[in-house]
Amino acid sequence: MSGVRMSQQHDDAPRPVEPKKPTEPSKYAQSGGLFGTFLASSSDWKTERPGMTESVGVSALSYLLSGPVVFALIGYGLDRWLHTGFLVPIGLLAGMALSIYLIWFRYGAE
């Protein structure tokens, strides 16, 4: 094993330009950086569980789906009950607005 390593070092040796490998930026990018962690510390899910950031989009999508559907269904039920016709679109709009507000409140506010 050690012989193999020696030869590898020997192979690397004649290249003098390379020794400054850019290790710092990659580490920096992975951890979000000093400033990044400072920025993200306002909401704790970003720092404690860094992988959650990728799935926020999917959660936002499920909020956006359930908002209009639920409130349009409520509007439909009220329409059937009160014999009116305008509550479905109102529920649709209100649900959409509510879900966008919730997403803004949960994920958007710094």
Partner: peptide
């Protein structure tokens, strides 16, 4: 319910969250 929401909107948000957590998420 995320903390800091105004009081009057909380029931609607609760309905939305329950539907999302119990129905929309597994279905999607």
């Amino acid at each position: 319910i995320p903390p800091g929401l105004p009081m009057w909107i909380r029931p609607m948000i609760l309905v939305l969250e329950i539907i999302t957590y119990f129905i929309t998420r597994p279905v999607t």
